[in-house]
């Protein structure tokens, strides 16, 4: 760790494990893109191997989640006030928000869950949070197979607006990647993150309007409540997805700009934050 700038004592020697400059690091990361792809598809299939139903759980879990939330929030608590097509509204919310949660929790274990690799092979560690985020993204794409029929059956028409789902999910993926970089470094440094994150993600879910309409909720509250709640990145991405799939949920240009700002800002800051910790990940 002493003086990375010091010249080598013998020409041609390099400091072992030295963090590369960010441009070279990024290039190395790009060279490992096949590793990211292979790792993601492998761990995606391995994740369910211990179950009888195997990968069917990729679709069953979100379905059961929707059922539970519909019973609790739609039927028991009547959170559906002010929402015309509640089941479709809720489904989009649950599926899209699940991507944020799984990127967060799997990202926090990206380093600690792969110590075997980290302690055995030298590669840019950023491939690990990138892989865990890609796994979460693949699961989101799978869950669209359930989501789209639900939305159609619930009475929403198929329109050209649906194509807006692609840029919306792409921006969300960039945001989640940035988030994964941040929590991967935090999780490597603070093992207690595993205990803290579930509370954070639950709080985040209940404040993001997954199962109720934020517009309706903020009506009786001061203006700043609405501002804070609508700036929440998860809410922004939910809005964009709902705008694409459901009628009567128009997202203004400002929402797209907020989504873009969150995506680029989080990714750049998160990547740099993760890169700065590159040398410490083996010492976990």
């Amino acid at each position: 760790m002493t003086l990375p700038e010091a010249p080598p004592p013998v020409p041609g020697l390099q400091r072992a494990g030295a963090r590369l400059p960010v441009d070279v690091y990024t290039q190395r990361l790009w060279e490992r893109r096949w590793f990211v792809a292979a790792y993601s598809s492998a761990s995606n299939s391995v994740g369910y191997e211990g179950n009888f139903l195997g990968q069917a759980w990729q679709l069953l879990t979100p379905l059961l989640n929707i059922l539970v939330y519909y019973l609790v929030f739609g039927l028991l608590l009547h959170s559906n006030r002010g929402v015309p097509n509640y089941i479709a509204f809720l489904s989009v919310g649950v599926f899209v928000f699940a991507f944020c949660t799984s990127a967060l929790t799997s990202g926090s274990r990206a380093i600690t869950g792969n110590l075997g690799l980290v302690r055995a092979l030298q590669f840019p560690r950023a491939v690990l949070p990138a892989s865990t985020t890609l796994v979460a993204f693949l699961r989101l794409l799978y869950s669209l197979l359930v989501l789209i029929p639900i939305v159609l059956i619930s009475g929403e028409p198929l329109t050209w607006h649906w194509l807006l789902l692609l840029p919306a999910l792409a921006l969300q993926a960039l945001f989640c990647l940035g988030l994964a970089f941040v929590v991967a470094r935090l999780g490597a440094r603070i093992p207690d993150m595993n205990e803290i994150l579930p509370f954070f993600s639950r709080l985040w879910m209940y404040t993001s309007g997954v199962m109720y309409s934020v517009t309706v909720f903020t009506q009786g509250h001061p203006g700043w409540v609405s501002t804070v709640m609508t700036l929440n990145p998860a809410y922004v991405y939910l809005q964009l997805a709902r705008n694409a799939l459901l009628i009567g949920n128009p997202a203004p240009v400002s929402t797209w700009l907020t989504a873009l700002a969150w995506a680029v800002g989080t990714l750049v800051m998160g990547y740099l934050y993760f890169w700065r910790g590159e040398e410490e990940y083996g010492n976990v």
């Binding site: 760790m1 013998v10 055995a120």
Partner: peptide, 24 residues
């Protein structure tokens, strides 16, 4: 191998060292 950072001192290598071990 550059997998653990020394708390003091420096390791210099020519090219990349790669480790193979049973513990990994």
């Amino acid at each position: 191998a550059g997998l653990m950072a020394p708390s003091q001192g420096v390791v210099w290598t020519r090219g990349q060292a790669s480790l193979l071990g049973v513990s990994a």
